[in-house]
Design a binder for these strands. Structure first.
Length: 278
DNA sequence: GCCCAGGTGGGAG
DNA sequence: CTCCCACATGGG
């Protein structure tokens, strides 16, 4: 089986994280329960109360990885408090509304492919295609979570699998014109031209520029990978929603420099609030 | 049937 | 530099 990881920290909301648009394989099962596939494992997440959550089905040796995944070492409470006390009315509301958000440390390759797919697509469509990719090319596994039934799930495929698949086969999954982008990125990683492991230690801007070498990866997608996989909190993905905030709330420009190493997190509060709050 | 989606690449001005 | 368009597909 596996052990269960009890997470005790302020500012954790599974609901908010699942709806935050940073991950695409975290799905609600029931009121306070979510299912998630990552690191080739299926786990279930349980919201116990405002400051406690539980990860069910974690193998012993994977405990540190999952603690890392949920970024337990970072004090989100202090950022929320700072914003709620600040003068920016919009950010005050945004931080209060999304106070349970966290920036996950997701697997780089999966994050890269996911956000290549995300371009010009809405979140439900993105999730559907990713699931189809996993179903078609990912390894099939089984797992029983305590108090649940036997679950079959599919890991996110390795770069080699998607590289071998070829873009014509990928097209049939509904990727549209993104087929060559996905295939090209998988090939670059599989052939070692792009070493995702090495990016981890580089600066935010270096990560973004290197990822932008890939065809189909612009600044927005690269920024998402930098933020949601490599945890570069100064990375600021600017999409149609953030542009909408800047236009409608801030009259055309926003001073990101004010928030430096928290800019990416600020961006996430904005994104979540404008889409789900007001 | 219509509009739009966590954009990008390419070209024109 | 900024504007503008095509791109393939599907959700609401």
């Amino acid at each position: 089986m596996g052990d269960d990881l009890l997470i005790q920290t302020n500012n954790i909301s599974l609901k908010q994280i699942a709806e935050s648009g940073q991950c695409f394989r975290m799905n609600q099962i029931s009121e306070k329960r979510y299912g998630l596939v990552a690191f080739g494992e299926y786990v279930e997440l349980l919201q116990l109360d405002d400051c406690r959550a539980e990860v069910l089905g974690v193998p012993q040796e994977m405990l540190p990885v999952w603690e890392d995944y949920f970024d337990l070492g970072y004090d989100y409470g202090s950022v929320v408090k700072m914003l709620c006390k600040g003068e920016d009315v919009f950010l005050r509301k945004a931080a209060a509304f999304g106070s349970g958000l966290r920036i996950l440390r997701q697997e780089p390759f999966e994050t890269l492919i996911s956000f290549i797919i995300s371009q010009n697509k809405n979140i439900p469509a993105i999730k559907k295609i990713i699931e189809k990719i996993c179903l078609t090319y990912g390894e099939k596994k089984r797992r029983r979570i305590k108090g649940g039934s036997d679950i079959a799930y599919y890991a996110f495929p390795a770069p080699e699998k998607l590289a071998e698949a070829g873009k014509d086969a990928l097209r049939t999954l509904g990727l549209g014109y993104r087929d060559e982008y996905v295939h090209g990125a998988a090939l670059a990683v599989a052939e070692g031209r792009l070493d995702l492991c090495k990016l981890k230690d580089k600066s935010c801007e270096e990560v973004i520029l290197e990822l932008m070498e890939l065809r189909g990866v612009g600044r927005k997608v690269a920024s998402c990978v930098a933020l949601f996989a490599f945890h570069k909190l100064e990375s600021i993905p600017v999409d149609v929603w953030i542009n909408r905030v800047i236009e409608e709330i801030y009259g055309g420009s926003f001073r990101w420099e004010t928030y430096k190493n928290q800019a990416g997190l600020i961006q996430q509060y904005m994104f979540y609030y404008i889409r789900n709050g007001r």
